[in-house]
Computed example of a mutant assay.
Amino acid sequence: MREFEQLTSIASANEFIQRHKLSFLFIFGTDCSVCHALQPQVQRLMMKYPEIALGAINAQEVKEVAGRFSIFTIPVLLLHVEGKEYIREARIVHLDLFDEKIRKIYDFVTG
């Protein structure tokens, strides 16, 4: 299973997004049961998309993440293409629909 790169600051998150053409951020919390249940499901889903870089950032440890990404709840799933946000899902995520959205963008970007 693919692992998430652990991001520990807003600077590292910004750099991660800029460094990769396709980047995915999983924003979670330490005490969030939904986050802990969703993360392995997202990891399995992302096996289909090897060119998407995976990053995770803990919103409880990096409090500035809320302001930087306009986060009001967790978990939040963000897909960026060339530094621009294309997909945002929060809290309860329907993985089938999320997969369809990613597939369309992924197929377009990767050709």
Rank of each mutant, 00 (worst) to 15 (best):
V109G: 01
R103W: 02
K21N: 04
I52C: 00
S70V: 11
G111A: 15
K104P: 04
N14C: 08
R19L: 07
L25V: 04
A13F: 13
I74Y: 04
V109F: 01
D107F: 07
E51T: 13
K84G: 00
G67E: 13
A90P: 07
E100M: 14
E85N: 11
Y106N: 02
R19W: 12
M47K: 13
G55L: 03
K21Q: 09
A59P: 02
H20C: 03
D96C: 04
H94D: 13
L95P: 03
I10D: 02
I57L: 03
E3A: 14
D107N: 15
F26L: 02
E89D: 08
L7V: 09
F69P: 01
F4M: 05
I87L: 06
V93H: 04
I71L: 04
V81Y: 08
F16A: 03
E5C: 07
I10E: 05
H36S: 14
D99N: 12
S12Q: 13
L22F: 08
E100T: 11
D107Y: 09
M1I: 09
T110Q: 15
L54K: 10
L78T: 02
P50A: 06
K101I: 01
Y49K: 05
M47T: 13
K104E: 12
K101Y: 05
H20E: 04
I92E: 09
I105H: 02
A53D: 05
A56M: 09
F16D: 01
Q43V: 13
A11W: 12
N58T: 08
F24G: 03
L45W: 00
T73R: 04
V93A: 03
A37E: 13
H80T: 04
L79V: 03
G111M: 14
I52L: 00
E5S: 13
E3Q: 15
E64A: 10
G29I: 10
E82L: 08
K101Q: 11
F108Q: 12
F98Q: 01
Q41P: 06
I105E: 00
F69E: 03
A59E: 04
T110P: 01
F24R: 03
P50R: 14
F16K: 06
P50K: 14
Q60W: 08
M46Q: 05
E61D: 13
D31E: 14
G83L: 02
G67Y: 12
F16I: 15
N14V: 09
A11T: 12
T73V: 15
A90Q: 14
M1P: 13
V34H: 11
G55R: 04
G67P: 03
H94I: 11
P75R: 02
D107Q: 15
I102R: 02
